[in-house]
């Protein structure tokens, strides 16, 4: 759980429809291209839509003992109801990415780095709120530098091929880069 050099853990804590599962699936596939071991535990409420929806992805070069844990070095939060818990789940020194177009609260911890990204709002302005998880993915990659974006793009291309996601490919890629840009320019923004 503490071996950043050997791999990483990330939690996406959202609501059904926020794309936590796609985030987890895509990242796991990308991780598998770089690490000896990858795991993904989805955890969501009973029905097909709505409710808390969470993904935990682990990347490691050693066999993964526990594919889920309370803490992770990075947490992406889009669920207002799970926000306080999500904040607690960031390891000390870790990163919290918050979609502040959904979550109004601000983090209280001082020992973590927090980024507020209005992913849902930007995605809606682009005409497709469903790509907000890709904006958050880009932001996550840029903030943590855990994987190069090319790997995720390659994975996205190969997993979208021949599926209904294929026509969203360019929009999804644009969203990834939008996320990267938001973090790259983040320090210049006033908080």
């Amino acid at each position: 759980m503490e071996k950043i050099d050997k791999g990483f853990r990330v939690i996406f804590a959202g609501l059904g429809g926020h794309g936590a599962l796609v985030f987890g699936e895509l990242l796991t596939e990308a991780v598998a291209r770089r690490y000896n071991y990858a795991s993904f535990v989805p955890n969501y409420a009973p029905s097909m839509r709505g409710g808390e929806s969470e993904s935990i992805v682990v990347a490691s070069n050693e066999e993964i003992d526990s594919p889920a844990s309370f803490e992770a070095e990075a947490v992406v939060a889009t669920s207002p109801s799970a926000f306080r818990l999500a904040e607690k789940r960031v390891s000390p020194g870790g990163i919290l990415i918050v979609d502040d177009s959904i979550i109004c609260e601000k983090a209280e911890r001082k020992d973590i780095k927090v980024f507020y990204i209005p992913a849902r709002k930007i995605a809606s302005e682009e005409g497709n709120p469903l790509i907000s998880n890709f904006i958050l993915m880009g932001a996550y990659l840029e903030a943590t530098k855990t994987l190069p974006v090319e790997i995720v793009e390659e994975t996205l291309e190969s997993t979208s091929k021949g599926t209904s996601r294929e026509r969203l490919l360019s929009a999804n890629k644009r969203a990834l880069h939008e996320g990267i840009r938001l973090i790259a320019n983040y320090s210049q923004q006033p908080l």
Binding site: E25, T28, A32, Y37, A38, S39, F40, V41, P42, N43, I64, P67, A68
Partner: peptide, 9 residues
């Protein structure tokens, strides 16, 4: 649930 839904190598 966890084992059924989880993905790994």
């Amino acid at each position: 649930f966890v084992l059924g839904r989880m993905t790994e190598y």
